[in-house]
Every structure is written in C-alpha cells, then in structure tokens.
Design a protein around this nucleic acid. Structure first.
Lengths: 159, 159
DNA sequence: GAATAATAGTTATATTTTATAGCTATTTTC
DNA sequence: GAAAATAGCTATAAAATATAACTATTATTC
C-alpha cells in the first residue's frame, strides 16, 4: 500500500534523511565536523584522482613547497601523522621522484625535505584544481560565509 | 650559538608550529576540518572515557533515543558507516544490554532498534557531559561565533 | 672528555578502522 | 509464481593508524 510513501529506510545515500529527528546530532559540532570532513575527503579523491594526489600527499607537498628543508618530524606533528606513517609516505614519494631527502649539514641526524622539479610540477597542477574544488565543496555557503567558516576554524585551531 | 632560538624541529606537540609558512594549509578548508575533527575526537575520548562512550556509540544512542524503531540501514547511512561495520557495533551494544532489536511486524526483514533502560540511562549520563565538553572544545570562540560555526556546518551538510 | 641520556629518522609489526563479497530471509515487481 | 530487489548479517580483506625497537648522531653531565 501507499506506493510512493516509502518511509523508514528510504534515503538515496546523498539526499538528506527526512522523517527522523536529528536535532541532537545537528547541535553536536563534533558530529557535524566529522560529516564535513568526510564530504571534503570524498570530494578530494574525485577531484584529484587523475593526479594521484591524496589529502595527505597534497598537504605534504604544500608544506615542503613553502618550507624547503622542513624535517620529517615537523611535518608529522603539523599534519598530525605519526612519524612512522609519514616515513612510509615519504619513501614512496621519494622513490617516485617527487621529493628529495638531504642530510642536514649542521645536524647529521636531521633530514631536509625538498621537492624535485617533478614534485614541484605536480603540486603546481594540483594547486590549479584547488579553487574549483573548494568552491564546489563550499557551494551551499556565500563567499562571505565561506570566509567566516575558514576564519572560525583557524581561530579554533591555532597553527 | 643562540641557545634559545631552536628553529627547525622545535615544537612541543600541542603548541602552534611557529617559523613555518603554513598559510596554504590555513586557507584549505578540508585540512582545517580534518584538524578540527581530530581535536574533537581526542577530546571526546578523554571526556567520555569513564562512560565507555565513543563518538560513534554516542551518535547511535542519540539517534535511537530520539527515533525509537530506526532500522540499522537508516542509522548507517545517516552516520556514514557501512552497514557491516555498524552491525558489529550493534551486536556489542545489544549483548551488553544497551539496545534491543525487534523484528518489524509490517516487514519481517526489517529490524527496529530501541534503547533498553540501561541504554537510556547511559546516554542520559553522556548527555550531561556534552555541554561542558563542547564548551571546552569551542573555547577559543565567543558564544555567537560558536553558534555561527554550527549554523554554517549545518548549511554545508543538510541532514 | 668518556659515559649517559636525548633526539631524528627509520623499520618492522600490531592494532584499529573501514570496505568488499557473499549469504539468508523476506518482500516487491512483472 | 519466477525474477529481482531489499534488509540484515557474517566473514574477510584492505587501508589507516599506533606501538616497539633499532641506528646514528648530538647534547648532557660528572
């Protein structure tokens, strides 16, 4: 009966789930942040798939580009990655020819990271996708609201 | 030389990383959202450890409380969990006596979830920790800004 | 200035989280 | 009433994340 009024589990994965009281979750910043993060990561993989960039490698490239010589430990604490997990990624990026490791002259324990020309080219191409990607993700907000959101996040998380 | 000016890898894990150019990441909403989410989850585990609640179980309890009879599939799509992964959690919650599964009368494939008195008590206690927890997490923002952040997130992610 | 402790990087491995494949029972479609 | 779809579930694989332990170098201390 009532062929069009599918109630209980009727949601097509992307559409808002109607007919449920979700106000508690909507008022929970942590939950909404998690949803937002998932949305941005899913969108990222779609947008940057062709370049083979992931959210993690994108951030790694960006930091090395702007801070040639950063040590892995700084990178790890900045990106909230455990050092061993970052090292694994750095190994792949180095053996693919995107980054280079130099031993520091002043402290021979330390490693200085920098981009190879190939890596610089990759992040440059990635940077071109960034604006349209962010625009798409933030589409429901006006430009002023987008700026506000970013500012509030930065206030929340002093880098 | 210059004993106080430790430059390269000098960060004490929680403090902002100075002396690096992080403007690119600061302008990247996806990255900032990830940091925010990690912060909220870490804080959650601290605050709710005594009750044994995780972000996932908290959300599950809250949705069942406000929507007795929700089916697992709705819950999964809502919380962005794959059904098999949710099922595993539900099994634990049921065998611990926090929730109950009923077969739907109208559709005997479907399951209706509800809280046991024990589960209702748990989420009630959890709810009491929620406000101080959110206050702590959002401390760097004024109350108006906290409301703005939440509203923007809700606009971004229509539930 | 030799012994001791601490730091940076790394490897190997364990744990946890998340995703995929396939199955049963029931309901819907044609 | 046969075929397809749906809801729930189990088992398992893949990916992400965390822990332990090791080397080489630098800093500390006595």
């Amino acid at each position: 009966m009532s062929p069009k009024t599918a109630r209980p589990g009727a949601k097509s994965a992307q559409q808002p789930e109607t007919s449920l009281d979700l106000r508690a979750l909507q008022r929970t910043p942590g939950f909404m942040l998690r949803l937002a993060q998932l949305k941005f990561f899913e969108g990222f993989y779609e947008e940057f798939a062709a370049l083979g960039l992931t959210p993690a490698t994108y951030a790694i490239f960006a930091v090395i580009r702007d801070n040639p010589g950063v040590p892995p430990s700084s990178l790890a604490s900045l990106l909230r990655l455990r050092l061993p997990n970052l090292i694994k990624i750095l190994n792949e990026l180095e053996s693919s020819g995107f980054i280079k490791r130099n031993r520091s002259k002043s402290d021979r324990r330390a490693v200085e990271l920098m981009l190879t020309p190939k890596g610089a080219k990759l992040i440059q191409e990635g940077a071109r996708l960034t604006e349209p990607y962010n625009r798409k993700m933030l589409a429901p907000l006006s430009e002023a609201e987008q700026r506000t959101l970013l500012e509030l996040l930065n206030r929340l998380l002093p880098l």
